[in-house]
Design a protein around this nucleic acid. Sequence first.
RNA 1: GCGCCUGUAGCUCAGCUGGAUAGAGCAACGGACUUCUAAUCCGUAGGUCGCAGGUUCGAAUCCUGCCAGGCGCACCA
Length: 566
Amino acid sequence: MKQQLEQALQQSVDMLLGESGISESVEVQLTRTKQKEHGDYAANVAMPLAKTLKMAPHAIAVKILATVQWPEAVEGADIAGPGFINIRLRKAAEAKILKAIVQAGSAYGMAEPKHIKVNVEFVSANPTGPMHVGHGRGAVIGDALSRVLQASGFDVTREYYINDAGNQIGVLAESVWLRMRELQGEKVTIPERCYPGDYIIEIARDLLQEGDDVELLAMSDEARLQWVGSRAVAANMQMIRNDLAQLGIAFDVFFSEKQLHDSGRVQSLIEKLKTDGLVYFGTLPPPKGKEIEDYQAASQWLFRTTQFGDDVDRPLAKQDGTATYFAADIAYHEDKALRKFERMIDVWGADHGGYVTRVQSAVKALTGKDQQPEVVLVQMVNLTRNGQPVRMSKRAGTFVTLEEVVSEVGADAVRFNFLTRRAESQLDFDLETAKQKNDENPVYYVQYAHARISNMIDKAAAEGLTLGEVDAVDLSHLTSDKESELTAKLMAYPETIEKAAERCEPYRVAIYLMELAAVFHRFYHDHRVIGDDVALSKARLMLVTATRQVLANGLQLLGVSTPERM
RNA sequence: GCGCCUGUAGCUCAGCUGGAUAGAGCAACGGACUUCUAAUCCGUAGGUCGCAGGUUCGAAUCCUGCCAGGCGCACCA
């Protein structure tokens, strides 16, 4: 609908510009009006045109309206204020949308396939321990974003990058191995650098069942740590998958960093870059304004990322000659490009914010693509209980895992809460508030609307009132403000999905659903659906059926359940 | 010191690729259940949109500077 109107206006505007011999074009952008006196949609084109045409905005608006060919759905248009064009839609046209919704069902709001491959990389928590709440927020946002992009017609692959290489895995292996010795009755001291936590002991216990203790002792240190490390990673990944499953999140691809190294891909990439002259052996200046105790200037292999927009060149190899995390990461992103993903979206924690430019620079150098990956930075979660900050310390054992939070407050409440705010604003998450099933918890507000309608439809059916043939329902009975307000809101759903997908902002769907639920609840209080007037009842039944459908579709995009009873 | 994010009602947040009188929820106060679910609704009150300049017909929105909070800043991931 919105697009049709924009096209109609655009034609008229282009014609006007053509007459005046102006070649530059001005794009028509419609907005939904905030007040109903302003009609259903508003266009402000006349104002920016005032300058180029050297005419008063009002006069321009008059000219536009004189030539515009409205689609049938438009009742009329007025000029208001300094030069707004306000468009009113026919009631009948508005009502048609209800039939479309009921007939489309779960497909309402889904765009046509775009045949564009998008890779969404998210979570990618290190496989060295349980996930915390911050990971959970990224997980929920990444998952909802994937769903929104799918609804918007993209071909989405959800991907998890497993950081199963590097020092941390060695530390993990050491931590587990020491616990294995301890479980065998040996007296061991666990060094400070090792991971604490009971899950390490559990992994150690499981591995003792699996591996022959004597054989392990006979191995070289390196071989043994390999053996333990790979199994510990697998165990942690299983734990992470379970926690994600509890939140309703699954992945299409798990991509191993270790394999990237083992297969020689990282090394060959570095060699290729050397050949291309994008790598040189040099020394970086020490970072300014930050004191580093044991700073030692050293020459190393540096990638000329500055040529592609970065602030400094970045090292590809460490002092010991092994590749840096960055080197592997650009090999990984190159791989995504080779797999023909037109868009790569990375959902990262805010603590990786400083990493964005260098990866984008590297990707640009390798593929020529600008602004890839598109990075969604998810800000921190401040966990509180009754307003008191929950101190997170791994050492003190007061660490709260994602699994604990989900178990305590429930997946729906966790997901919805994480999705009601923009990713880039910090989130206060109170355990007690999220647990309460009251009006402080927006998830229930939306779900309640869904349950209410479900109940109503059941009740109507019990009294012999059903929709029957959709085309036979006479929607002209829907005449009140509340009814058209609700219809208008339903019509805005596809636009909301589109915008959310375009800007990678799934929270828009959550905000929309809260607004839709509010409009519905207001309608509910003013109007009875089931009544003596069968024709009216049917029309309203159609309205609430469509409303329930949109609530369900939206909740599904957020991965939140749609209860029929509460 | 530099870079990124944030600053809107007492609290939590929308509104931010410029548009009409800045909106919700919670908390406060006052109302609405013999009628389809009161996990709901209606009303009242609550604002120097961090501060100061600038651009513009028009700024919460764009630009500059400052203030406050968060995150980050070689050889970790």
